[in-house]
Design a protein around this nucleic acid. Sequence first.
DNA 1: TAGGAATCACACATATGGTA
DNA 2: TACCATATGTGTGATTCCTA
Length: 362
Amino acid sequence: MSPTAASFVFDPSRYPADPGCYLMKGAAGQVLYVGKAVNLRKRLSSYFRPRSRDRRTASLAARVAEVEVILVRTEVESLLLENNLIKLYQPAYNRLLKGEDTGYFYIVLTAEELPRLAPYRKGRLNQELGDAPIAQFFGPYASGPFRDRLLQLAVEAFQLRTCQVLPARACLRYHMHKCGGICEARVSAAEYAAAVRRATAFLSKPQPALLEQIRREMMAHADRLEFEIAQRLKERIEALEQTLSLQVVERQVDHDEDVIYIGSEAVLVATVRRGVLQGLSLCALDGAQGGAALPGERFVLSRYARRAPEELIVNELPDPAATEQALRRATGRRVRITIPRRGAKVELLALCAQNYAYRTSL
DNA sequence: TAGGAATCACACATATGGTA
DNA sequence: TACCATATGTGTGATTCCTA
């Protein structure tokens, strides 16, 4: 039986003082509101104080029957996850960020003869883009200032033009060594095209080598007491480090995955659709039946016998190949089972393990 | 030390007024 | 009249301070 709104009593001790997203659900299980917080316990407490601050918050709190939380590791992850969950559930109390591609910040590569990078938000006036057609999107990024620092980093590191109309003579940016001077043919079209390719490769997957190079430059400027330049480089490093930090709630993946963390008493399943984390569910692990199969293997076979995503990412299975074969027989198509050792999939499992520990401790 | 309350900072939406 | 810049109000989360 689902709890009623009136029966919900907020207990701060049930919520961790960690970063994450929260989903406030009504009596019928519908998602009323999705939010994020650096400290979930404190943030949620603010909703359920006796004297709620405004009518809207009071109205929301009165309708809440359940609060589900999803723990993440970083603020960037919580922002992206919140954005994805709002788009997925369209909660009645979330007035912002509901548009398909609104809310967060992008960098775009123009499809001009001499392409350039520009900041972008859908549905907004993008003055720096002008009328230029778009060839490629990068992002979304968690904040405008972060996106802007990253954009500046890429444009200056690869000396790309920023001008909407090529000037007749090289501008100040060229003389400050921030632009290669393509307008005056100081670099050839081929060299400029190569710089654009390197910049887009960097934005798609930032390389640690560039970080080290900038760090060395920063130290050199600091040694020469050029603290203003060193400070600018420090900001670039921070932007780059944020980009390099592996976030797993939104990845570039073109198929569906379930991430399965098998614990000793239950299983936590993360639903990932086209790279976007959509939710978590804790399932009971039936250890009593099933013959020779271990509980985890039995769970996978029973849950995915009828319908399965293209890939299952599992923390442990005694014989993944045999389970794969059994699922192929049951579903009539191949279901890839991955037990990752490194990379984003391991990070996804770590996220599941963190949420498993929290949910089984309640 | 944890939790509650107040306050602050920031982003966004909307209203308003000036200018071409 | 359309466009743009600025002001104002609101929502949200973070921070700080106070108290038990």
